[in-house]
């Protein structure tokens, strides 16, 4: 289904599969359009793999932070009524979704 990528390296991103992981039903047209674009981007960003980072610690936060927490106290939230106002579909204060089949 996926078209040939514009560059050889771009083959490693499988747009249809990644779209499935991200829960986006892309059309064939979209997949065909995104495949070379993302292939090109992946080829570009792969440049960082050329750096030797074996001894470098990863940075997860832009700044040093630690131990930020709150006391175990309650804080007023939203009423069910207010929460339901934004709900695309609701019933008896439940958010309604298509039938879940387990």
């Amino acid at each position: 289904m996926s078209p040939e990528p514009s560059q050889p390296g771009g083959a490693e991103i499988d747009v249809a599969y990644v779209a499935h992981l991200a829960r986006m039903h892309l059309s064939d047209e979209e997949i065909a359009r995104f495949q070379p674009q993302l292939g090109q981007i992946v080829d570009y960003v792969r440049q960082i793999q050329a750096l030797d980072t074996s001894d470098v610690e990863p940075t997860a936060h832009a700044i040093e932070i630690r131990n930020v927490a709150r006391a175990d106290t309650r804080r007023e939230g939203l009423s069910a009524d207010v929460a339901m106002r934004n709900a695309p579909q609701s019933k008896d204060d439940f958010f309604v979704v298509p039938k879940i089949v387990e």
Partner: peptide
């Protein structure tokens, strides 16, 4: 998600995923 996001957002979600 297919209907709600535009192309650039889709591309970035795909890349990030």
């Amino acid at each position: 998600r297919a209907a709600g996001f535009g192309d650039e957002v889709k591309r970035r979600i795909l890349l990030g995923t």
